[in-house]
């Protein structure tokens, strides 16, 4: 470790090292996203404090994806300062009312749906991708979700975003091509047996909701809510 630092300082002058560190720290600070800020006028006007996350529509071939996904959906939205209706309770109540088909729930009137629960808004999530693509050398696991938030009072759309996360296990070359091929086959087999989508789903939700410019703005339970609502000019 110390050897590496010293050799770096030999290659670059001391000032450069500082510069790199500074750039690193700055990058860490703004890693949440860059770009044009979303137009939050409708959210600002409605000031929603609760979000009803309804069961998700699945466009992937993995039939277990919607349930598994649901377990990762509440945390970032609640942490962003909103009251999130308990997802399992909501799912069970809808099923009891004959609304077990997520597609049907998504096509239903958001105002009526929100009215059943007393929710300010309804969050509709579609799983667009939840798959593992197998190649000889590496397997790539990908998830992609589409999020639409609608007003429970007017039914109009308030916010939408899309989030994608991929993961390819790092296969470090051993120098022996045959050993590499076998190692890759083992990695692929493990991924095929049980690709772990959950950390990817968590990361995708996190980046969709918490993105500084395109994410969900802070809700009433967030410490930055008042600052967001009345920005200092």
């Amino acid at each position: 470790m110390s050897k590496r630092v010293r050799s770096a300082s030999q290659v670059f002058p001391a000032g450069w090292l500082w510069g790199f560190c500074l750039v690193g720290v700055l990058l860490a600070g703004c890693a949440r996203g860059v770009g044009v800020p979303y137009n939050y006028d409708k959210i600002r006007a409605l000031r929603p404090s609760s979000i009803l996350i309804v069961p998700v529509v699945n466009q992937s071939v993995d039939v277990a994806a919607p349930d598994y996904f649901l377990s990762t959906a509440s945390l970032p939205v609640a942490e962003q300062g909103y009251y999130v209706f308990p997802v399992n309770l909501v799912k069970r109540l809808l099923e009891d009312d004959g609304l077990s088909d997520a597609g049907f729930v998504h096509r239903a009137d958001p105002v009526r749906l929100a009215g059943l629960f007393g929710a300010d808004t309804v969050l509709y999530i579609v799983i667009e991708r939840w798959d593992a693509r197998y190649a000889v050398l590496a397997t790539t696991v990908t998830v992609q979700f589409h999020y639409v938030l609608k007003s429970g009072i007017t039914g109009e759309e308030l916010w939408r975003t899309r989030s994608t996360m991929s993961y390819t296990p790092e296969s470090q070359s051993s120098g022996n091509p045959w050993a590499d091929l076998i190692a890759a086959a083992i990695t692929a087999a493990v991924a095929k047996a049980a690709p772990n989508y959950i950390p990817l789903a968590q990361a995708a939700n996190y980046s969709a909701v918490m993105d500084r410019y395109q994410g969900l703005p802070p809700g009433p339970h967030h410490r930055k809510y008042m600052h967001w609502l009345h920005p200092v000019k």
């Binding site: 349930d67 649901l70 990762t72 399992n88 959950i198």
Partner: peptide, 9 residues
């Protein structure tokens, strides 16, 4: 999260 996941599994 993991308890809910296990419940759905």
């Amino acid at each position: 999260e993991s308890a809910l996941y296990q419940h759905y599994a």
